[in-house]
């Protein structure tokens, strides 16, 4: 039963992580910059490299968190005080999602430092090689760590509660869920959608995305309180 709860926590954390928008926005910038100067085959490899970069940093992030937690606490769970602090951060991020993460008006701009947004935009503009695209993916995922680090720590703690045999599957599953929006976007563009179609969809459904992403953080927080702090039996 404990494994089911751990898998539930990993799944919810990954889902909340997947709803963060910086990776998707950076991917669209890369598409826009690349399609207007390269043939589409080159763009496809650049985009694949970008997605690999995001996946790599998320995998390294969660693996490093697992290692750090195991080094500090061994086979024990996170102390309840630390878990409560992480839950507090999760609720705070939910409030950020509902209030300031998305700019108001008809835009998909995000609440990130302007210098970071400009740097990512300028890097997307000059990205010509797979290495640069991979690095851009690393950068985009890393820039979102202030919002995702609590999720990664919570998921890492739950990964450590699983059997040795399923830990690797859980890690890969987490990364796959985080990458899903990027993979779906890539498939949509392959099927003939343009970046305008995707950007319009994001703009039209901004309120929905805001509500769902905030709600996912809240659900994760409540789930943790119920099963990890209060200890409700399944």
């Amino acid at each position: 039963m404990s494994d089911i709860i751990s898998v539930g926590i990993i799944f919810l954390s990954a889902l909340a992580h997947a709803f963060l928008q910086l990776g998707l926005g950076s991917l669209l910038l890369l598409y826009h910059a690349s399609l207007n100067k390269h043939v589409s085959k080159k763009t496809k490899t650049l985009v694949s490299s970008f997605i690999s970069g995001v996946g790599m940093i998320v995998l390294l992030g969660i693996a490093a968190a697992c290692y750090a937690l195991y080094s500090i606490f061994g086979d024990n769970n996170l102390p309840i005080e630390l878990l409560a602090a992480l839950i507090g951060i999760v609720f705070s991020v939910a409030i950020i999602m509902w209030t300031i993460y998305y700019h108001r008006g008809k835009t998909t701009e995000l609440w990130i430092p302007k210098a970071v947004a400009k740097f990512i935009s300028s890097r997307a503009e000059v990205t010509n090689s797979n290495t640069e695209a991979f690095s851009l993916g690393l950068l985009a995922a890393f820039a979102e760590f202030p919002l995702s680090f609590a999720l990664i720590l919570i998921a890492a703690n739950s990964v450590l509660e699983l059997n040795y045999t399923v830990r690797n599957i859980a890690l890969v599953g987490y990364v796959f869920i985080v990458l899903l929006p990027l993979i779906i976007t890539r498939l949509c563009i392959r099927k003939g959608k343009t970046i305008v179609d995707i950007q319009r969809w994001r703009e039209a459904n901004k309120t929905f995305l805001r509500i769902i992403s905030g709600l996912l953080f809240v659900v994760l927080g409540v789930f943790l309180i119920a099963y990890r702090i209060i200890g409700v039996p399944l």
Binding site: G25, A117, I120, T194, V196
Partner: peptide, 14 residues
């Protein structure tokens, strides 16, 4: 309309 949209929004994606 698509071209106008992308021209107007290219700095407003992130």
């Amino acid at each position: 309309a698509d071209l106008a949209y992308i021209y107007h929004n290219r700095d407003k994606i992130i």
